[in-house]
């Protein structure tokens, strides 16, 4: 075994890239769930975002327009979920699952003409001074814009939920929609906006996959990333910074285990393959081990339909 072959700087740089799709999808889903809605369609929205972003970037030659189209496309898709669950009061779990199945099929159809094409490359940012720093420069400041957007989103969601009136209203709707309604807040409207935000984020995550991380379009290319994002929201007990930790942990160990295999670590491959799942869950569960506080962090109205006549 030759562990010296693994360069920790490069490893951290690739873990950030590897974790970004999951992080984007997870932070969006966190907002959705904070508003009391459980949308299991993350996987479907991600893959639709992946193809919308890819197709737009290929057609226009601009990755930025690709990302915008991905966010718009997935937000539009999530609107289907919003209408079904918020106006027609369909079961959220079933609708979410259906959204995933629909998204997988729909994206495959949209993507027919885009197989085997190459997207325009997304430039990495060169930040004056910071990018030129030794060590941290290559590690943290040599990424493309979306990596920083995802980090900024985490910070923004955290600050909004914690310090602003909008955040308070969103949480109120998620904790007790009847009380929020009695106070005069438009529960349905707020939830729909939250669902669309979640859709847009999932779309960005998917587009990051098809435009930066791989970069190509293949049917079903999200391969379960949406489900990981959902799990990270739960295990991160609905806290933005823990979601960031969970996503980076999962992304990091996924990359690390491949590096360890390449370096010839004498551990059966099966253990390495399951390690990202095991370690991420373990760490987040231990962090949320205080049961009384953990119970508080789940939005009380999560997954419950709201109807004003109640």
């Amino acid at each position: 075994m030759d562990l010296s072959a693994i360069n920790p700087l490069v490893l951290i740089a690739s873990l950030m890239v590897s974790a970004t799709p999951i992080l984007l999808a997870a932070i969006g889903e966190l907002v959705v769930e904070k508003s009391g809605v459980l949308n299991l369609g993350v996987e479907g929205m991600m893959i639709v975002g992946a193809i919308c972003g890819f197709a737009t970037a290929v057609e226009t030659g601009s990755p930025l327009l690709g990302f915008i189209a991905a966010a718009a496309g997935s937000a539009l898709l999530s609107l289907i979920f919003a209408v079904l669950t918020q106006f027609l009061l369909a079961n959220q779990v079933a609708t979410g699952l259906a959204l995933t199945l629909f998204g997988l099929g729909f994206s495959a159809m949209l993507g027919q003409g885009y197989v085997g094409l190459k997207p325009p490359s997304t430039p990495t940012l060169h930040i004056p001074v910071l990018s030129d720093l030794p060590v941290v420069g290559t590690m943290l400041f040599s990424h493309d814009l979306m990596v920083y957007v995802s980090l900024a989103l985490v910070a923004a969601v955290w600050a909004t939920l914690k310090y602003t009136r909008v955040g308070l209203i969103l949480r109120a709707v998620g904790e007790n929609h009847d009380a929020a309604h009695a106070l005069g807040y438009k529960v349905i409207r707020i939830r729909i906006l939250a669902i669309m935000f979640g859709g847009a984020c999932a779309g960005l995550g998917g587009a990051y996959l098809s435009l930066v991380r791989v970069p190509q379009w293949t049917e079903g290319m999200t391969a379960g990333a949406g489900w990981i994002a959902l799990a990270i929201v739960v295990f991160g007990s609905w806290k933005p910074w823990r979601v960031l930790l969970g996503a980076y942990l999962f992304g990091g160990i996924s990359v690390l285990q491949l590096n360890l295999q390449a370096a010839g670590l004498k551990v059966p491959v099966q253990y390495l393959s399951m390690s990202p799942y095991l370690i991420t869950i373990l760490v987040l569960v231990i962090m949320s081990a205080n049961r009384s506080r953990a119970a508080l962090s789940a939005p009380a109205s999560l997954g419950r339909s709201f109807h004003a006549s109640h």
Binding site: A5, S18, R213, S254, L258
Partner: peptide
């Protein structure tokens, strides 16, 4: 077939001098 994982594996290999 998991493009993201295959890409990660290729990256890991290249980072180690392949």
């Amino acid at each position: 077939a998991d493009p993201a994982k295959e890409a990660d594996a290729a990256n890991a290999l290249i980072e180690q001098g392949v």
